[in-house]
Amino acid sequence: MISVIDLCYREDSLSREEFVTPVERLLRRSGREFNTRHYTAPDIEAADAAILCGTALMDTGFAERPDLFYWLLEFERPVLGISSGMRALATAFGAGVEPGCGIGMTEVEVLSPDPLFAGKERFSAYEVRGCAVGVPGGFVALAASKECVQAIRHRFLPLYGLLFHPEVRNDWLIERFLGLVDQRP
């Protein structure tokens, strides 16, 4: 079961269909069981993996409550943080955040070998971000655009962050993440 975490400004918000529903649709299409919870009340006990969804550009309420993401430090199961979800993941592990707006298609270059990006050296991705996120200690930068790091992964654990939105034109990345979840014993 995949735990989908909604980071939007409130539960069942107007942003939900823009940032959470497309991820749920991909999970449904690939036959995965999932439950969706707001970040203020995550239900991760029975989860095999967690996906942290993005938010609107102006929506940074989640970042004011870093304590609500400390469960990520001990989760040790696969995590995919998308855009604001990457910010929440990275800051839980101590990363800094710098102002830096990026909106639209951007070229992403893969920097380090990883099963998530296997066979890809470059690709175009859709970003809607109001900041650049640092690489926290214990993580590696997996991919970057000219402006900033676009993908990170924990050195030993399957914790991934993608600053761009893979659900737009790159849903293969979510499929691959689910493949990694399936491969775990």
């Binding site: 269909e17 823009e18 497309p22 609107a56 550009l57 102006m58």
Partner: peptide, 15 residues
Amino acid sequence: CYELGLWCFNPLWLA
């Protein structure tokens, strides 16, 4: 919207 500090909602996005 971002330049003007306005929220942007696209409730049909990827529908």
